[in-house]
């Protein structure tokens, strides 16, 4: 399986929900110290649902494509549902096997989202370690 398959490259080249929100209810930014990738996520929340989402930043194909996919997935979902998203959900979305370093790239957006929305700062999948 090619790590650079069409689907990922499409998200990378034409990301969904790229940008920032003027008055976000939640805005959070973090970087991955391993490679300097940086992602910010802005959310507008209404009735405990994610009404609007934007992401911005810079990074490799995998981190940006995963962020783009994640924003598509969470739009309209309740905060409770989004809180349940796990490392495996991201891996399913990305759909290719990843080594430990690239795994962090794929998980960065979810980490930013969870830190901003729920104050959970651990890497997804390492919450109990």
């Amino acid at each position: 399986m090619n790590i650079y398959q069409e689907d990922l490259l499409d998200h990378y080249e034409n990301p969904s929900n790229y940008g920032t929100l003027p008055n976000p209810d939640i805005s959070h930014e973090e970087d991955n110290p391993l490679c300097g990738d940086q992602i910010r996520i802005d959310l507008m929340v209404e009735d405990d649902k994610i009404k609007e989402v934007r992401f911005s930043g810079h990074g490799c194909t995998i981190s940006l494509a995963a962020a783009s996919m994640l924003t598509e997935k969470i739009k309209g979902k309740s905060l409770e549902e989004v809180k349940q998203l796990s490392k495996d959900d991201i891996l399913d979305m990305v759909g290719i096997p990843l080594g430990p370093v690239r795994l962090k790239c794929a998980l960065l957006a979810l980490k930013v989202l969870k830190a901003g929305a729920y104050g959970i700062h651990a890497w997804p999948g390492e919450e109990n370690e």
């Binding site: 790590i3 650079y4 990738d37 490799c60 194909t61 995998i62």
Partner: peptide
């Protein structure tokens, strides 16, 4: 991105560092 360069090179049997 340097990571992507390294990723493609890896599929090509070339091990280099990015970071």
């Amino acid at each position: 991105h340097p990571h992507d360069v390294a990723g493609v090179l890896d599929t090509h049997g070339v091990a280099i560092r990015a970071g």
